[in-house]
Structure formats: structure tokens, C-alpha cells
């Protein structure tokens, strides 16, 4: 958490990672209102920034971020429910849903083709840890790689993926 001690570059990188995490987190839970996700990502980033004095270095960062994201999401849903009650419920028409599902499927397919371009030692750790949610130790056991090799694989693999995406 060098970001919280005021190094602007480290902090920007942290917020960047965080925004990706939040986008995934919120997209999964707000599938019905895909257009609102980015607004809520920004609102949550702002909350993280404004409330960074409530983070205690002894506490897991993920728990802190998760709790903020959950709070902001519930707050949003509550506000929306209040608005919705006064509105015509025609707003969630099925076209919207269809489009966003299609996008999600496309994103997955793109990810799969990009992942396929990685060598096994990078691809497997990412697939096991980042997509299937195993721990580093479990992934190491699964692949027969050492734990540090798994971590390095994830790190380099994600870097390579980022480079692919940028084109």
C-alpha cells in the first residue's frame, strides 16, 4: 500500500487495478443494469480515495475494498429501487439484457483466444488462480510448478495479456 503513503504513481497503478477489480465485481452483480456499472465504479473509486484514512495496514486490503464496494452497490440499488417505484417499469426491456449478455460472451471468447496465445507456464497459473479461483498453493500442486513459479507466471502472463489487449 505504498499508494496510501502518497506515492502518486504507485497510487495511480493501484487505483487502475482496483477499477478493473470493481468493474468485474459490479458487472457480475448488476447484470440487469450494465449501463450503470461504470458510474458505480467511479463512485466506489472516489469512496475508496476519500475514505483511505479508514484503512488499517493490519487489515486485509481485499476485505476493506470489498466492504466499500458492497456498501456502494447496496446504496445504489436502494436509491434505484426508490426511483423505480415512481417510474414506469418498462425500463428493463429485454433488448438491454440481450445486448449485455452478448457482450459478456464476446468478452469471454476474446479472453479465451488471448489466453490461448500464452505459453502453458503463464496460461495455466492464470486460468487456475484468476479464473477458477484456486489458491496459489493449490495451483502449484495441480500443475507441479513451485509456488513462486505460479506467482511469476501470473504476473508475466497478465503483463503479456495487457500487451495483447493494447494491440
Amino acid at each position: 500500500m505504498r499508494g496510501l503513503s502518497g506515492e502518486a504513481a504507485a497510487y495511480a497503478a493501484f487505483l487502475m487495478d482496483l477499477s478493473a477489480f470493481l468493474r468485474a465485481f459490479l458487472r457480475g452483480r448488476l447484470a440487469r443494469v450494465p449501463d450503470e456499472v461504470e458510474d458505480l465504479v467511479q463512485e466506489t473509486l472516489l469512496a475508496v480515495h476519500n475514505q483511505r484514512h479508514t484503512y488499517d495496514a493490519a487489515q486485509p486490503l481485499t476485505a476493506w475494498v470489498h466492504a466499500i464496494a458492497r456498501y456502494k452497490m447496496i446504496d445504489f440499488l436502494r436509491r434505484r429501487a426508490g426511483r423505480e417505484a415512481m417510474n414506469d417499469p418498462l425500463e428493463d426491456d429485454s433488448d438491454l439484457l440481450g445486448a449485455s449478455d452478448e457482450e459478456a460472451r464476446e468478452a469471454k471468447r476474446d479472453m479465451a483466444t488471448l489466453l490461448a496465445r500464452l505459453p502453458d507456464r503463464h496460461r495455466l497459473p492464470i486460468q487456475l488462480v484468476k479464473i477458477e479461483g484456486l489458491s496459489v498453493a493449490e495451483a502449484a500442486k495441480h500443475t507441479g510448478m513451485s509456488e513462486s513459479a505460479v506467482k511469476v507466471g501470473i504476473h508475466r502472463g497478465l503483463k503479456a495479456l495487457a500487451a495483447y489487449i493494447r494491440g
Binding site: A8, A9, R52, Y55
Partner: peptide, 10 residues
């Protein structure tokens, strides 16, 4: 946000 990130005292 990153440009006005004064450090936070613990």
C-alpha cells in the same frame, strides 16, 4: 485522484 493523494497519517 492520484494527483492529489496526500499521504494519510496512520
Amino acid at each position: 485522484l492520484a494527483s492529489n493523494a496526500e499521504p494519510v497519517a496512520p
